[in-house]
Computed example of a mutant assay.
Amino acid sequence: MALSLHFRPPFLHLVLLVFSIFSISLHASDPPLTLDYYAKTCPTLLEIVRKEMECAVLSDPRNAALILRLHFHDCFVQGCDASVLLDDTITLQGEKTAPLNLNSLKGFGIIDRIKNKLESDCPSIVSCADILTIAARDAVILVGGPYWDVPLGRKDSKTAGYALVSTNIPASDDGLLSIISKFLSQGLSVTDMVALSGAHTIGMARCVNFRARISGDFIATSGMNPTSETYLSKLKSICPAAGGGDDNESDMDYVTPNVFDNSFYDILLKGEGLLNSDQELYSSVVGIETKKLVQKYAEDSIAFFSQFSDSMVKMGNITNSDTYVNGEVRKNCRFVNT
C-alpha cells in the first residue's frame, strides 16, 4: 500500500503511516471468501443475478451505474455488509438518509427483485451483501466493462453506520489528500483509488455536487480552462449559478455515458472533470503519481480494465470479523431479521 507521490509534505508521512497501520489492523483477521461458497447450497445464484441485471440494464443502462455506486457506498461503511440497504426503523438509523447518500443512492428495487427470486430458490442462504457484490460485477460487464471473479461468503450486518458515511465516503468537493486518506483507511492504495474512480465513466452527478465546480470561469485546480466552451454552457444550463435545479443531473462522462470505457480519463486530461474530486486526480499540485495514472489509463484501456478488476475484488473483500461472527443472512435486504 505505497503512496509514491514525489511531493510529500512532512505531515503526510505521518498520515500515511497511521492509515496504513489502521488498515492492517482492520482487515488482518477478516474471514476468507471463496469462489464456490454457494456451489452446493444455491447453484442458481449467479444465473439469477445475471438475468435480473440483464433486465435492469436493458430497460435503462443507467441502472448499471446505480448498482455500482450502491456497492461502493456499502463497502466504505462497515465493510461490504449490505448496511447501505437497510431502511430506517424505530431502533435503527440507516445510511440511506445520511446527507451524502440522500437523493444520491438508487437501485434498491433491483436488489429487492434479485433477493425475492433467490428466496424462492434458496431461502435464507444468500446474503444481501453477496448479492450486491455480484450485481455490481454484472452491471459493469453489461455496459462493456471487464469481468472479474467474485469471492463470496459475506454476512449481512445487523447495524448501519449513518455517522460513518460523511467520514468514510469521498465527497464531490474533497481535495486529493482527503480522498487518498479515505481510500487508505479502507486498505486501498492510490492506484486503487484512481482505477476505481474510473467507475464514473457510467455515472451521473447532481447539480448540487458540481455547481461550485462550474461557477465563474470553470477554472480547474491546475489553472487551465476547459477546451470546450460549449460543454461549459451546457452545464450552466443544467445547473444555474443562481440556485435551483439541485437535483438536475449531468453525465460524468459526456463522451460515452452508457459505455464502460476509459474516456473518463481523457476528459480529466482536458480539465473537464465534472466533479472537483475527479479533476483533482489529474490537476492537484500534490498529485504527481495520480496524474501519471490518469495519463496511463487514458492511453491504455487494457491497463485500466485490468487494474479496475483487481481493485474491485480488493474493495469487495473489505469485511470485518464482527459482522462475520454476529451477522446474518437477511430474508429482506431492507430489514434486519426479527
Rank of each mutant, 00 (worst) to 15 (best):
N168G: 07
I67P: 10
V143H: 01
H73C: 01
A195N: 06
A212F: 05
A220T: 14
E272T: 11
L184G: 03
H6L: 15
G327Y: 07
A98Q: 00
R8M: 13
G94T: 00
F19M: 08
T44A: 14
T41V: 11
L85P: 04
I111G: 08
A298E: 04
P151Q: 12
S157K: 06
T227H: 05
I238S: 04
L68W: 02
L33M: 12
G327H: 09
T34V: 14
A171G: 12
V190Y: 03
F335M: 05
L105G: 00
L12E: 12
L184I: 08
I131K: 09
K234L: 03
V336A: 07
T97Y: 04
A2P: 02
A241E: 14
H13N: 15
T159A: 13
D81W: 01
L26S: 13
L152P: 12
S228T: 14
N332H: 12
R50C: 02
E272K: 08
D322I: 13
L176Y: 13
C122F: 05
G327N: 11
I111Y: 11
I67R: 09
V77T: 01
L85E: 03
S228V: 06
F7T: 13
G287R: 05
S166N: 10
D36K: 13
E272Q: 15
S29C: 09
K51Q: 13
V84A: 03
L16V: 15
V194P: 03
R330A: 10
L268I: 15
L196E: 07
